[in-house]
Every structure is written in structure tokens, then in C-alpha cells.
């Protein structure tokens, strides 16, 4: 199924902005490598969010200016970051106690596939790739809420929101909300419930791009993109 060319998909920045609006003031948050990292830029002013990274740091800030990078001060993507006032450093077991012990409020991750029952597949695409899991399985099983930020379909048009994941799972029944470039979809009682859709796209057109049933709880709102 292809999309009416008049419909504007959200850009990666717009998707990150939309996800950022749902981060509560006072949250401890872990952002996955890639597009989720962009979310930090768009958290509304006045909300205080503390960012956690798997490699032993709570309370980090943006990349330092060129020339001031410290190879011993990086995030889980091995990119240079800075220490904000009030930051804390700790070893890996403490870092994953924060994750696995349910101390983090929210994790935002990418996905290969999300199933209607909340299953997430985001670590192994196919049989021949060299498997690499990192901290994804720990995050989805331990963090209080897991949001997914991903395009609605793959580059060749296959749906990423599906009835059942065909790729290896990262966690079973772990995702509560999905932000795509076309919609915001919740996982409720093992069903996808559409909350917001981009301007001009009908629910039926969205269904054609989705690999599972889409339900409504009242008319979906407009997916805004600042």
C-alpha cells in the first residue's frame, strides 16, 4: 500500500518532538541510540528530565563543543556527552539495578516491529546478521513505561505495527505507546488503539499501512508536528 502523496509524514525531528511532549516533569528517562536520542532536544521548557545512560551516568547533557570531547565521558552510543550539575557516576551493576529494579520512569526505543500485544522486536533482523542485544532486553523488562519511536512502515513499505512479531523478541508485552511518522498508537488490552493521526490521513488509509487491527477510543486527534 502506498501513501497519498498529499499526506505529509512527520520528519524524524517532528516525531521526536511529539514523543517529547509525553515525557512527564520529574522523570528519569533512558533514550535508545538513534532517533530516540533526538527526543531530549524537544522536551518542553520547564520540565525537568534526568537522563540515564547504561554505561554508568545519570544526569548528562548535550555533546560538548568540538575539541572538548572526553573519551571517558560518553553515552551508550559511545558519543561524547557532558556532566550536568548534580550528575552521578556509577558502575554497570548499579546502572542496570536502576533499569532492572524499576527505578527509571520511561524508556524510548526504536523498533523493527511492534505487535498489538505490546511485544517488541528491535535487536535482531533476520538470521544472518551478527546478533547484538546491548541493554535493550533489560530496559524493556525493567523500566516502568516503554515507548517506541519508529516509522510506521519499513523503507520498502512493510508495516512495522503487526499482529505478531516475525523477528526475535526483545520483550513480550512491554510497549505501551508507539509514535510513528503517521500516528500515535497505544497498546491497550492486547490491541492497538489509535490516538492521533497526521493531517488528511483517514483511519482506513492508516489501516492499509498497518499489519494489525486498529481500534478507536473516540475519534483520533490530529497528530501535530511543531
Amino acid at each position: 500500500m502506498s501513501l497519498d502523496p498529499a499526506i505529509k509524514r512527520l520528519t524524524r525531528q517532528q516525531m521526536a518532538w511529539r514523543a517529547a511532549q509525553d515525557i512527564a516533569d520529574g522523570s528519569y528517562v533512558n533514550l535508545g541510540i538513534g532517533m530516540p536520542e533526538l527526543v531530549a532536544r524537544y522536551v518542553p521548557a520547564g520540565r525537568h528530565v534526568t537522563y540515564h545512560t547504561e554505561n554508568g551516568l545519570l544526569g548528562f547533557g548535550e555533546r560538548p563543543p568540538e575539541g572538548q570531547e572526553d573519551p571517558d565521558l560518553v553515552n551508550a552510543g559511545k558519543k561524547p556527552v557532558t556532566l550536568l550539575p548534580g550528575a552521578a557516576l556509577f558502575h554497570h551493576a548499579d546502572s542496570f539495578a536502576m533499569i532492572r529494579g524499576g527505578h527509571l520512569d520511561l524508556s524510548i526505543l526504536g523498533a523493527f516491529q511492534v505487535a498489538q500485544n505490546g511485544d517488541l522486536a528491535n535487536w535482531q533482523a533476520g538470521e544472518d546478521a551478527i546478533p547484538a542485544v546491548g541493554g535493550a532486553m533489560d530496559l524493556v523488562s525493567g523500566v516502568k513505561q516503554v515507548f517506541v519511536l519508529t516509522e510506521h512502515t519499513t523503507r520498502d513499505g512493510q508495516p512495522k505495527l503487526v499482529e505478531r512479531c516475525s523477528y526475535a523478541l526483545t520483550g513480550a508485552g512491554v510497549v505501551t505507546r508507539v509514535f510513528t511518522d503517521l500516528a500515535v498508537v497505544d497498546v491497550i488490552d492486547r490491541q492497538f488503539v489509535v490516538r492521533e493521526i497526521v493531517d488528511g490521513l483517514s483511519l482506513d488509509a492508516l489501516r492499509a499501512l498497518t499489519g494489525a487491527d486498529l481500534h478507536e477510543a473516540g475519534a483520533p486527534g490530529l497528530l501535530k508536528a511543531a
Binding site: E54, A93, P131, G134, A136, M137, S141, L169, G171
Partner: peptide
């Protein structure tokens, strides 16, 4: 291949004399 938190905790357990532990991580996965 070991999930990162499980890897850290297995090493910690090795150092702390804990031969095994249970975790949610990887439940329901390959």
C-alpha cells in the same frame, strides 16, 4: 550473547559468591 544488564549482574554475582539469580530480562525471548 548476553543482555548487558545480565552480563553486569552475572559478573557481580561471580564476585559476590552468588551462583545463580533470576531476572525478568530475556523472558519470552530466544
Amino acid at each position: 550473547l548476553v543482555p548487558q544488564g545480565t552480563l553486569a549482574e552475572r559478573i557481580r554475582a561471580g564476585g559476590a559468591g552468588i551462583p545463580a539469580f533470576f531476572t525478568r530480562t530475556s523472558a519470552g525471548t530466544p
